[in-house]
Design a binder for these strands. Sequence first.
RNA 1: UCCCCGGUAGCUCAACAGGCAGAGCGGGUGGCUGUUAACCACUAGGUCGUAGGUUCGAAUCCUACCCGGGGAGCCA
Length: 461
Amino acid sequence: MNRTRVKAALTSDTALDPIRIQGWVRTRRDSKGFSFLEINDGSCLKNIQVIVEHNSPAGALLKDIQTGASVEVTGALVESPGKGQKWEVKAREVTLFGTADPESYPLQKKRHSDEFLRTIAHLRPRTNKYGALFRIRSESAFSVHQFFRDRGFFYLQSPIITGSDCEGAGELFRVTTLPPFPPAGASKTDVFQEDFFGKEAGLTVSGQLEAELFTCALGNVYTFGPTFRAENSNTPRHAAEFWMIEPEMAFADLSDNMDLAEDLVKHMTRHVVEKCPEDLELFARFVDKDLMENLDAILNNTYVRLPYAEAVQILEKSGKPFEFPVKFGADLQTEHERYLCETHFKKPVLVYDYPKEIKAFYMRLNDDGTTVAAMDLLVPRVGELVGGSQREERYEVLHRRILETGMDPADYWWYLDIRRYGTVYHSGFGLGFERFLMMVTGVTNIRDVIPFPRTPKHLEF
RNA sequence: UCCCCGGUAGCUCAACAGGCAGAGCGGGUGGCUGUUAACCACUAGGUCGUAGGUUCGAAUCCUACCCGGGGAGCCA
């Protein structure tokens, strides 16, 4: 007999006999002559209630079937005479696979703090909140592929290991097979000649450059994979390993790019709202009371499109005593971004055309000579969810920008080559997958939306 | 990396101005009940983050370090 997942059992149209349920015991309540078991198998938020008669063969096992134990129950799915659930399982046979010593099993029926659950990251997906979160994470990932596939984008697996030591963003983690202590007197280059790749290698900080190469062949592509930044960042919004979605479109300008970002965020959000209503409800009740209202603002507004220069004007006129002064040419501080999308507009804001000095070399120089065609999507509570740009497709301009920012064009010969042979205007952006999950669940710490978070000094699981 | 706050029972926290270390939940035992984060009674459980210092006496004051949280920077 195949197992029936709890989700299917709970939504059954009819009674079923026989039925087999397999899962983990969330709680046991003893009554006169029989016990109630609540079993969860991860298929959905809800548990299924199982009735075990004390004088049945299974009854003898009950003393060892405690919170956390893994069991199999065969019996009949029948209408529940009690309140609170439509269906329950009357057990005929129970198999106990693994006990969970109640003296040491860390999960209680009561609510635990997120900080504590992080210390038992191997067990936290067994809680209601984290089970719901990781089901939402899975559905969100699916919605990404669905979105792009429906629009004719191809999924590009950009490399994880990279040899370009300055992709533009962030510090690289080194990848090496060398012994930890180099021979005395060896120069840096000499050392890496002996290494696996014969040169210094690192983990990717972005798939963008590779995506640009492929978009100039396949038209529209996207990457969706892990990204690594060896920054000593210690904030609720940064992780050393995170997942990023990076679409790239040929024959697309900054306006097309902003259209795509807005459409993607709305599509992913709508997908979660439609496919995960029960799991989302948990977050709306216990994590963020305003969650549904906030998601409504994400879904049902046209996002504000605001040139950087106008954003600065709004901030200057706001009269707000910002800790950091607002001035043209300086990057927007977190407090400024929050003011714009949370207080002033109260909806997502796309800020674009930033001064070139505060943005990356590959962003397309505007005709004014001072700004670049960059855009950031700011959303309430999370801040920067998307960062992107139209790319500089003019060989001479790009070459000059590389030199201006103190880099060596020779390291980017292949990136420049794309501008020599059939160059086209193109655009793309990066969307932080975990930041999306924070936005859609109301969870305020990135460590709580990743299965096993990697942050400075944390690599336990 | 910088600034602020914190670390007391398995978990969440209290202990005023230095003077015998507590509660709720969880665990154990017994009772009750088609129960629903069940209920009632009893009970076990602590090197007060670590190391040093001040004091007759330190969970409490001081110093250093470790760990956690929040803010800032970096950005996704």
